[in-house]
């Protein structure tokens, strides 16, 4: 899958802000993923050409960053932080609840492609723990009940 021309034009503009052509690579990978759901082989080939890098080098970079993936995930990627501040306030139970509720484990996707689940490291919501990011949206001070509402909301949004 390829990225849109609009996004590509945006990349070309942003690249001008740096003295080397590879500098904007990490954001380009992330924004490409946001658009098509993952970093596809086509995107890798395209960005390699765009930045004058080998595809290998682009893959080296991708595999370093934990948010980047080369396989599609669910429409809603549920990222449960279980780091210390969240753990002290019930994140493990929350993660267990999500696993049970969605019927999937860490880095798995529901068969309908609606949800992916991921246990993640600190997302900067320590004072509002436990917290979850669904895609880029923060949900904080969660309980299993509130989590159910978050998931339900996602399903509703998906139907619209």
């Amino acid at each position: 899958m390829a990225i849109s021309e609009k996004l590509d034009a945006f990349f070309s503009e942003k690249m001008k802000e740096y003295p080397t052509s590879r500098s904007f690579l990490v954001p380009m990978l992330l924004y490409s993923q946001d658009e098509i759901g993952y970093v596809s082989d086509e995107v890798i080939a395209h960005l390699a050409k765009k930045t004058g890098l080998t595809e290998l080098e682009v893959r080296n970079v991708i595999s370093y960053y934990s948010m980047l993936r080369t396989k599609p995930a669910g429409r809603y990627n549920v990222q449960v932080c279980t780091n210390i501040s969240c753990q002290l306030r019930g994140a493990d139970e929350l993660f267990a609840h999500c696993k049970k509720k969605l019927g999937i484990g860490h880095k798995q996707t529901t068969p309908d492609g609606m949800f992916s689940l991921e246990e993640v490291e600190c997302i900067g919501a320590c004072s509002w723990a436990p917290a979850v990011q669904v895609n880029y949206d923060f949900h904080e001070n969660l309980t299993p009940q509130k989590m159910d509402a978050v998931l339900e909301n996602c399903r509703k949004k998906a139907k619209q």
Partner: peptide, 26 residues
């Protein structure tokens, strides 16, 4: 200019941050 990472604690280390901004592994 704004710039963004893609998930790496190590990039908070200042020299790794520069590598990341230069489009490399952190």
């Amino acid at each position: 200019y704004w710039h963004t990472g893609a998930g790496a604690y190590e990039v908070g280390e200042e020299s790794a941050l520069m590598e990341s901004l230069e489009g490399k592994r952190g």
